[in-house]
Design a protein around this nucleic acid. Structure first.
Lengths: 248, 248
DNA sequence: CGGGGGGTTGATCTCCTTCAATCAACGTGG
DNA sequence: CCACGTTGATTGAAGGAGATCAACCCCCCG
């Protein structure tokens, strides 16, 4: 039911849009051929749950297109997002067989999945995969630690500004624009998802977005379309050093 | 000045107390010999800063004994702890040359350091190191994500209970005791460090610890010596599932 | 037309922060 | 040996940032 092969999906690794950033980025052509044998594509619709926390994981994989979230939930329903998965990001942990988090597609999503056991054995033979995975994991750890500062010490306004600047920055690098001049992008998350990301309620998210708009830090068209007239200003609001940015 | 070789330090990798858990855990004896050539020990006193964020990093290394913290600071002084480094934990990121966080010794500390460039070249030749480092980094990422839930969604009381249960659990595994019966340990952190860990003020930390004591969840002798009569009760207070625990 | 999902805004409440006083333990120098 | 300063911790009173509860809007879709 969930697993439907689809024509819109890249047929060949050589033409894969995430080829140069994903876990397979360092692989040689023969290694790609090996991967090809254990890989398959899966499509999910916006809102669908990809994996439930605690479920058996028989695959790992990469996000090819779309956005997914990693969330934890307490018994009483409080939920915290702990990861935002963008194209090229890796899902699953080699060596673990049950999922630790919920993975939910927030937009329509295509994943390139590898059967877990073959992937693990392949990883132990080909250092290129493990090397790249280490690099990606270290990056994720850095991002998680940055986020711990946001969650633990920033005000609601700073949290919103931080999230907006992160999305803006990623969007700028994705579209290869500089950080000069006004930035324009669409929010990929609902107010509720933003709240789960930031450890806030959706009402507070809404209020703070309105406040930033009222103060001219951002401009809004509709609910999702954002313009940042002055990125430096936004970074100030985020409590970050306005010049260097987060990663020095 | 900071670098004083010391007799109390393990002279041989074979006798090293963290040998089986550190980044070198998987190394063969010839690999250990190689490591031996680029390694040196450093001692720090409680309170000393090991590395300043932004500083040039010319080494990476493992905590041999003692405890250190990883913290981030905003310009106005707000600080958030983003890692608690225990014996066998790894410090530094191969591939990055300036430190991203402050590392501070909270107790007297011994580190086994490797010169960074030789370590990096060695890592690219010996998969055993990269494999182990990947495993350790994935564990840290899990811990960071667990902590994001604590920071974002838990109440002050739950935060304290969470921290206590984490310390208790680690202490129990360290001393190879079961989780049955009362647990006894010393807090390795000041109230202020606990506050920085939990995204609270030290006053709130103090109040909540008093409250947990008053309610019989914990017992205190002095400021640091803690007894947990009923671990299940503490886990309930932490908002965790009382049976399975954090990692299912 | 009705209904539902996503979003905004208002009023009130509460948990945590802030500011401040106090205390115990400890070391140090007169 | 005692006065003193320091550091870590506790406790109290007051205030505020964000949560909670609730009403309402907009827009799309069946």
């Amino acid at each position: 039911m969930l697993n439907e092969r689809n024509l819109a999906v890249p047929p060949e690794c050589a033409e894969c849009p995430i080829r140069h950033r994903a876990v397979c980025a360092r692989c040689e052509s023969d290694e790609l051929e090996q991967l090809d044998e254990i890989k398959y594509y899966r499509k999910f619709e916006a809102g669908q749950t990809v994996i439930w926390s605690g479920d058996q994981m028989d695959f790992v994989g990469s996000v090819v297109s779309g956005i997914a979230t990693l969330t934890q939930t307490m018994e009483d329903g409080r939920t915290q997002m702990v990861g935002l998965l963008l194209p090229s990001d890796f899902v699953g942990r080699p060596g673990r067989n049950s999922a630790a988090y919920n993975v939910v597609a927030t937009t329509d999503l295509v994943m390139c999945c590898f059967r877990k056991t073959p992937f693990e054995t392949m990883m132990s033979h080909t250092p290129h995969i493990a090397q790249r995975l280490l690099e990606m994991t270290l990056d994720e750890l850095d991002a998680a630690r940055e986020w711990m500062l946001v969650l633990g010490r920033k005000t609601a306004r700073e949290k919103i500004a931080s999230l907006l600047s992160i999305i803006a920055r990623r969007d700028a690098t994705l579209h290869l624009r500089g950080v000069e001049g006004p930035l324009v992008f669409d929010l990929p998350l609902t107010r509720e998802a933003m709240a789960d990301y930031l450890g806030l309620t959706l009402e507070t998210v809404s209020r703070q977005i309105s406040a930033l708009k009222r103060d001219g830090v951002i401009q809004l068209e509709g609910k999702r379309h954002v313009t940042i007239p002055d990125m430096g200003r936004l970074l100030e609001e985020a409590g970050d050093d306005a010049d260097g940015g987060v990663f020095v």
